[in-house]
Design a protein around this nucleic acid. Structure first.
Lengths: 209, 209
DNA sequence: TGGCAACACGAGTATTTGCTCATATTATAG
DNA sequence: CTATAATATGAGCAAATACTCGTGTTGCCA
């Protein structure tokens, strides 16, 4: 089988100097991706934008793919921490509290740099999704699952795995689409309210919307 | 402003000979896209696969982009016709009938060539989405809107535009994700049932799931 | 202060690839 | 049968671009 090239850093930065370089590379990658899109982004321009040489870039990233992977893993990690924090703090709060809170948080996260999220989720070839990202999604599923188990008695659907899938997919795609296609919805709390209604009406046994 | 290169055919096929050629190019594009993904697909290989010369390809398609655009427009058109047919035939049927029917149909459409849909929706740069596709989405929204207006008295949410947005996005993303990530769900009617429940619980005033 | 490791440099290479154009072949109309 | 339009060909160009490598510079520690 054709063993894929690695996406982990070739060399770890040890001095402050190089840590700044790596930071600059990440920042530049973000910027170029946002401005030009994935297929117009090239490593020479990223290095130029970062104010470093192309050689330095390849000291820390073995290939172009690893640059994008780093960004995606960073975003995935942020999402895990976000949902983790919310669900930990609100583990004993009912759905009516938790659902709107999470929706608001996810919209806020997507709204920080909408175009970056768009590029990462819509233009990156499937082959570049790393194991770390799958693990991140896995972790989120586990968190949601645990919460749903906790409140099982108040929830209508019975197949918890299926429910987790539907929940996570629905929230993510609606928040994403809203930020990208209907940015005016984001500042409007009616949208968050409506997505909450969608999920609560589905989940709660005796809804009183 | 930088006037973009056209995506419409450079020359229209007039004889049967060339119509076959164009068909072969479309088929080959699909095949290469499915097998290799977007960024590994190149026009020389597409021509080779189609059994024609690279020169012939460029007689009918002005650039690589137009090949992909043709496929995407074809798919968008199919979706419009699908939803249009269903909603026309079932215009006077209640939500409990229409929602499951549409979900089943969309899943079936996505399941014909899942990998192609994945590539088209996840790997194609945003810049290549053509006006025709936006028009197609527009048409679907109008159809759904008309149906919702027809049954307005039985529907709970009041902001119809917002409801159309939420409905179309939710159905599309769930069907897509199911076919790609959880193919075992597709043969299982429980998934369709559950997505129907999600939407019906949200829409219907006095749900009795 | 000398020596080693970490870091930075960037011209150049090797490859890929979108696309052209001059030419050849085939169909059709008069 | 002939003229003209339609169609097909593919070698090769021009540009883009991922990545290397030999060399120079800076920081750290004994």
């Amino acid at each position: 089988m054709p063993n894929k090239p690695p996406t982990t850093p070739r060399k770890l930065p040890r001095q402050d100097r190089s840590r700044i370089t790596v930071e600059a590379i990440i920042e530049a990658t973000t910027h170029i991706l946002v401005e030009e899109g994935y297929d117009k982004a090239n490593t020479n321009r990223i290095a130029e934008r970062a104010g470093i040489s192309i050689g330095s870039l390849y000291q820390y990233f073995p290939n172009k793919e690893s640059l994008v992977t780093a960004l995606m893993e960073q975003h995935a990690q942020e999402m895990v921490e976000l949902v983790g924090m919310k669900l930990e703090r609100l583990f004993d709060s009912p759905l009516e509290i938790v659902i709107p809170e999470i929706i608001t948080a996810i919209i806020a996260a997507h709204a920080i740099n909408p175009r970056l999220h768009q590029v990462l989720s819509e233009e990156i070839p499937y082959s570049e999704r790393s194991p770390k990202m799958q693990q991140a999604n896995e972790r989120i599923s586990i968190l949601i699952r645990a919460y749903l188990e906790r409140w099982r008695d108040y929830i209508h659907p019975q197949n918890i795995d299926l429910t987790v899938f539907i929940l996570s997919r629905t929230v993510d795609s609606l928040c994403h689409a809203a930020v990208i296609e209907q940015p005016h919805l984001v500042s409007d709390s009616q949208f968050e309210q409506e997505v909450s209604n969608l999920l609560l009406a589905y989940l709660i046994k005796n809804p009183a919307i």
